[in-house]
């Protein structure tokens, strides 16, 4: 018995030591393919497809450039955070608070940024994402409160860490809910801003979300798992897609030109825009979906 125990224990210990723990400096795996069939199997794998949905920070920056004003009254109440007990609600609202955090930070409302950071931290904690968003992140943010650029960088990196952590731990559906929650909140904020601060640029940015919405629907639909909440979100996005369908966007195909040594893609097409009726319909639908997520 002892004769077998030691070699076996050594193998288990060596395997665990080699596979576990924090990622080391070496960032690759080398797989020894003993048989050709293993190699062929690997080669035959389908390609990996990603959908790059504009992040809350990118959306907030676009809104600011389009002349949007900051309005704290339209953001999710920080007191709501304790209402979210189900993981799906927590994930959606981590996205919602993440978008509110980006909006407040891009417009340099530092105190509110800290409140939204605290809410996001709470939800990340409940979702078990403390590896990516913990007390040291909060402390770092507090220390950079007066340095807007540094604060934006920390928020961006934290959002990325949370998303990556969820994906690498096989919780892609939770990641998708977070991304969907963030995108819906961004659309809600943009459309609400138009009620007091309607500009052609803002309308164009809202109309252009048609592309992001198509990618988001593809992302949410890419999971084979049975997830009732994800199905619900899919339905919400499909309803929005119906409204966005009416919006005219340029024909596919990008022209390229050079401008000071930089490639310019497109530019000859008329920009997408929204009629009053389209804007009202999208605003109402976005509000109804968003309110169903936060309440």
């Amino acid at each position: 018995m002892r004769k077998y125990l030691w070699p076996a224990a050594f193998i288990v210990a060596a395997s665990l030591a080699g596979c576990g723990g924090e990622p080391a400096a070496q960032d690759q795996l080398t797989v020894d393919t003993a048989t050709d069939s293993t190699k062929e199997e690997r080669m035959a794998k389908t390609k990996k497809i990603f959908y790059n949905i504009p992040s809350p920070m990118e959306t907030a920056a676009l809104l600011k450039k389009a002349g949007a004003q900051y309005n704290s009254k339209i953001l999710n109440d920080v007191k709501n955070v304790d209402k979210y007990t189900a993981a799906s609600q927590q994930a959606l609202n981590l996205g919602v608070y993440g978008a509110d955090l980006s909006y407040a930070s891009v417009f340099n409302h530092t105190q509110e940024s800290m409140f939204y950071t605290s809410c996001s931290r709470k939800l990340a904690d409940r979702l078990g994402v403390t590896n990516a968003f913990n007390d040291s992140t909060l402390e770092l943010m507090q220390s950079k409160m007066n340095d807007r650029d540094a604060l934006l960088d920390i928020i961006s990196t934290t959002y990325w860490d949370v998303d990556a952590y969820l994906k690498e731990n096989g919780r892609d559906n939770i990641s998708a809910l977070m991304i969907a929650g963030g995108w819906v909140e961004g659309l809600y904020v943009a459309t609400q801003v138009t009620t007091t601060n309607d500009t052609p640029d803002l309308r164009r940015r809202i109309a252009e979300q048609k592309h992001a919405l198509d990618d988001l629907v593809a992302l949410v639909s890419s999971y084979g798992v049975e997830d009732a909440r994800l199905d619900g979100v899919k339905g919400d996005l499909a309803a929005l897609q119906e409204l966005f369908k009416e919006i005219k966007t340029p024909e596919p195909g990008a022209t390229t030109t050079e401008e000071n040594g930089v490639t310019v893609i497109g530019g000859n097409e008329p920009p997408a825009t929204l009629t009053d009726d389209q804007l009202t319909a999208i605003r109402d639908k976005a509000a109804s979906i968003r309110n169903s997520y936060i309440n």
């Binding site: 992040s55 920070m57 961006s156 990618d215």
Partner: peptide
């Protein structure tokens, strides 16, 4: 950085793609 995690472990012969939108 646009905050989106698009990374995968790939082997020779494998392919990945990212759909994205550039804003005017």
């Amino acid at each position: 950085f646009n905050e989106t995690f698009n990374a995968a472990q790939l082997a020779p012969g494998e392919e990945a793609e990212v759909n994205l939108t550039f804003y005017s």
